[in-house]
Design a protein around this nucleic acid. Sequence first.
DNA 1: TAGTGGTCTAGACCACACA
DNA 2: GTGTGGTCTAGACCACTAC
Lengths: 259, 259
Amino acid sequence: MGTAVGGDRAVPRYLQIAEEIVQQIRAGVLKPGDMVPSESELTDRYGVSGGTIRKAMVEVRASGLVDTRHGKGSMVKDRPPVRLRSSDRFRRSHRRGGKAAYLAETDQAGATSEVRMLYRGTAEAPAEIAERLGLDAGTQVLARRRLYFRNGTPVETATSYIPWDVAKEIPELHNDNPGPGGIYARLEDHGHEFAEFMETLVPRLATKAESSELALSPGAPVVHLVRNAVTTEGRVVEVCDTLMAADQFVWEYRIPAVD
Amino acid sequence: MGTAVGGDRAVPRYLQIAEEIVQQIRAGVLKPGDMVPSESELTDRYGVSGGTIRKAMVEVRASGLVDTRHGKGSMVKDRPPVRLRSSDRFRRSHRRGGKAAYLAETDQAGATSEVRMLYRGTAEAPAEIAERLGLDAGTQVLARRRLYFRNGTPVETATSYIPWDVAKEIPELHNDNPGPGGIYARLEDHGHEFAEFMETLVPRLATKAESSELALSPGAPVVHLVRNAVTTEGRVVEVCDTLMAADQFVWEYRIPAVD
DNA sequence: TAGTGGTCTAGACCACACA
DNA sequence: GTGTGGTCTAGACCACTAC
């Protein structure tokens, strides 16, 4: 046909359907691990066309309650115990205790963690990174790109950039595993004493490419976080560029009162 | 017809088109204030159906570079001169200079600002707030709820909660305008010296109600930020519960390196 | 191979903006 | 009014998953 419209103008049908499905999940009618009915079944059940169900499911995915995979369907997610990303995660004592920041936190939350190295080697520093490092754009730096998992699901990608003159004297940085305490511990071992870290957060919606890398629904919120590691000499010896699934973290910062 | 497919499998046509439009904006071919071509014009130009252009525009909107309004079209947004929400906005010197945190920042960015008081009076502290204040849930506190505008558009709602025993001794807190330097300056005037502020950020998607209050599209990203103001005596004398349009801010925090 | 989600078409009608 | 975006249909083919 081609006729639009059902009854309720004001709130579109696809949003009504999405809301109904989300409510079923929140109310426990659909439990974690359950499959959401397939799109064709929903088409029949609601008496609407496939396109409408499709839009509804986009909304349901945006709620972050389901995990959709091609050819398989949509499964109701486990509700991950949200984790605190506290500003004390860069304590020297954690590094001296052999724990890098990421592992220190996940352990604390009782979750399993895994790190996969995606790239390790030289790269041209992107303009924004080069500026933070005090280098010319395009200068060769050491780049280490990792994908972090918690409880088996990817939650964060992180790329560390380290000026080559710093990196070349620290052999462990060129291995997949930089050793106990992570790369910050190695930088300290080699005389780079940290004075402060500066983090910049930009929350936004994931692009398509990003959402596939982090196994998110397109349009899910992410946080683009970039951190400078500044030494007591005032030099930025590392910049870490990370993209994090927003619903997997809570950020906490303590700001000392100053004059 | 009904035939799908063009040439490039792997990356869908609608993403290619979205990327092309985004690049035109980033490259300055489409400048701030320009209208993006209408969907029907894009349909002709790219030789695809309306639905495909529609999906492409959803992606372009997700980039945050355009502002789309029904019946009007999509306009390229002004490139806001990075609105930094820096952790140094709570300097005493700003307050002594008569500027509250919010105004100190907007001024710095060369933007106009406006504050509208939505509520001012006693209220029962919500559970989460009461816990932060070290009170029993439901205890009466002073609540001040404001809506902040920048360049005429609402960007943030903020509700301050202050224990009644603190508030009752500070008459200015019971006025719409608490005077130069804002409520933190008044708290300091009355002997509450701040030691630190603790902020918790939770980025997520806006609910329907929130998106209408901040004039956002439903599903736009927001940041729920809650801040404790802690005195040198270790007491939390204020909790500020804020909801901010994520695309209007960049958050910056300095984290001192500690043992 | 059957079933699922992902992309796409070529139309339609509705609601909003502006002259 | 004309033109815009917003919703919806009833199909089609493709790609992935599981049996």
